[in-house]
């Protein structure tokens, strides 16, 4: 199980990265994170929506209610140009942290 702080800190780059691949709604984001982490990271509604709303207030993402094929309406989030820029910076920072730890643990660092 991951530490709460780590899950909270990584939520921003994760949400931005998922939305960089295309628009998505809250439930879809939770499923995607579960799938990518092999079930290790379990987000709840109380985790994902406050993060999404905070990022929206910061102007990094925006949202729109749209009707899905099932006829049910869902709130889709998508990345703004400011969000795309922030994601670049976040990616560099996280990779730098990753590489520092890799060097400490004698593992192969990745190219930034």
């Amino acid at each position: 199980m991951f530490a709460k702080d780590l899950v909270a800190a990584s939520s921003k780059p994760m949400v931005l990265s998922i939305l960089a691949e295309g628009e998505a709604y809250g439930y879809q984001i939770i499923q995607k994170v579960r799938e990518l982490s092999g079930g290790d990271i379990e987000w709840s509604e109380g985790t994902v929506y406050p993060v999404l709303h905070r990022l929206e207030r910061e102007g990094l993402i925006a949202s729109e209610w749209k009707e899905a094929e099932t006829g049910r309406e869902r709130k889709y989030y998508f990345l703004t140009s400011a969000g795309r820029k922030t994601l670049k910076g976040e990616r560099q920072q996280w990779l730098k942290v990753h590489n520092t730890l890799c060097k400490l643990w004698k593992l192969e660092p990745v190219s930034i």
Partner: peptide
């Protein structure tokens, strides 16, 4: 109301 509507669609998906 918007939060509630969003949470309800989430519950229905779930």
């Amino acid at each position: 109301p918007d939060n509630r509507r969003e949470l309800e669609t989430h519950l229905q998906d779930s």
